[in-house]
Computed example of a mutant assay.
Amino acid sequence: MPVDGEVRRERLRGETDEPGWEVDPDDEWGVAVVATVGRQLKLRREAVGMRAADFGEAVGYGEDLVYKIEGGRRIPRPEYLDRADEVLGAGGLLAAMKEDVARVRYPKRVRDLAQMEAQAVEMGLYSNHNIHGLLQAEEHMRALFDVWLPGYSEGETERMVAARMARRSIFDRSPAPTLSFVQEEVTLRRPVGGRMVWRRQLERLLEIGKLRNVSIQVLPTDCEEHFGTGGLIEVLKFPDGTAVARSEGAFSGRPVSDPKQLRILELRYGMIRAQALTTRESRAFIERMLGET
């Protein structure tokens, strides 16, 4: 089915010029995935006797981009794979690659973190500077990335937002993991992105806080004895009884799994939770803030 001319021109502009779809040469797994997908696309196209220019016309993208994707130099969009599957009669085999290809766009460190979160059955998360990434509204994410120095390109921002949004699938898992968050009061009061973005973020916290497996607590700024001065703490526990944790202010900030080191971070997180408002008090606190905005 031919693509409308105006739509096709829009796609050509977006796919040819938009940054953020290049392959990171330092990401070995990502390079391998994109190269494999490109090779399969080329083999399928040649098997049906279609020239690159004709194929590009059929799927609605430029010939130059077709060569880049087939050569493993460009990450194909999901809709590109859908159209290629249809045009080449692949029976769903090309479209099935979308999930792996989508993950290539996420920075490697984010993929590693998302993989651990996907396996965890219990998570304890303390944030003292920003609202934790899993709790952030999309508008808030973008506002944070917009003020980062040195600045992200538009494409890099899109990659980071997409990766962080994908991690939110943890709230849809079944069986649901137990998720405990402690947020410093200051992270809720900082109106990053302006008043409307701030309101949306507070609403997001109230939405997530309604989930039965989620606990959100606020640590008041006027707390005199503060056990969170070492910065962010994350404790993840897995089905086999193992765990991993990290803190900005302990063990050089690296993830640890040694039982002695784990106990230290678990103790700190437990003390922080004990100092924070209860979940009921925290919800009321956030509702009052929302009413004041």
Results as ranks from 00 to 15, higher is better:
G71R: 09
D258L: 10
L144E: 04
M116F: 10
Q115S: 15
T221Q: 15
D54W: 04
T16P: 00
E46F: 00
G5L: 14
M271T: 11
E184M: 12
N213V: 04
I131F: 04
E79P: 00
W198E: 07
G56D: 10
E117G: 02
W148D: 04
M141P: 03
Q183D: 10
Q115V: 05
A176R: 13
P107W: 11
N213R: 09
L41N: 05
R164I: 08
F227P: 14
E287L: 07
G71I: 06
G30D: 06
R13C: 04
R190W: 09
V3F: 06
H140N: 10
M289K: 05
V66W: 01
E139D: 12
T157M: 14
G155E: 08
R204W: 03
A114T: 05
Q201P: 04
Q275I: 04
A53N: 08
E281R: 14
R159G: 03
V48D: 03
L113G: 03
A58F: 01
I208A: 07
A114K: 03
L267T: 15
N130V: 13
F145L: 15
R142D: 10
K237R: 15
I75C: 01
F145A: 09
V101W: 07
L12V: 10
V214C: 08
G133M: 05
E156M: 13
R164F: 06
R246D: 03
G89C: 08
G249P: 02
Y152N: 10
E292D: 15
A284L: 13
A102L: 14
M97K: 15
G253I: 01
N130C: 06
V147F: 07
M123T: 08
P191Q: 11
G72C: 09
L144G: 07
C223L: 10
G241M: 06
R199Q: 13
A52P: 00
A114Q: 04
R109F: 06
S215N: 02
M1F: 03
W29D: 14
D222S: 13
W148A: 13
G72A: 09
V218P: 05
E287C: 02
I272Q: 02
G49A: 13
L125Q: 11
R83I: 06
K42Y: 01
G71H: 07
G5D: 14
I286E: 02
R168D: 09
E207I: 13
G270T: 07
Y67T: 12
P107A: 12
L290G: 05
G62F: 11
L41R: 04
A32N: 12
R189L: 10
M116H: 13
L81D: 07
P2Q: 12
V244D: 02
M116L: 15
V121I: 14
D222N: 11
G193Y: 07
E266S: 13
N213D: 08
R164T: 10
R9E: 14
L93V: 11
E266Y: 02
L277F: 01
E203F: 05
P239F: 08
A58K: 09
P259C: 15
L265P: 02
I170E: 05
I131M: 07
F227H: 13
R164P: 02
R142K: 12
R8S: 10
R212K: 15
E184Y: 11
V23H: 04
V37C: 08
K98V: 15
E86M: 09
E63D: 15
E15P: 00
L41Y: 02
G193E: 12
K260C: 02
W148C: 09
R200L: 12
A250V: 08
V31N: 07
V104C: 00
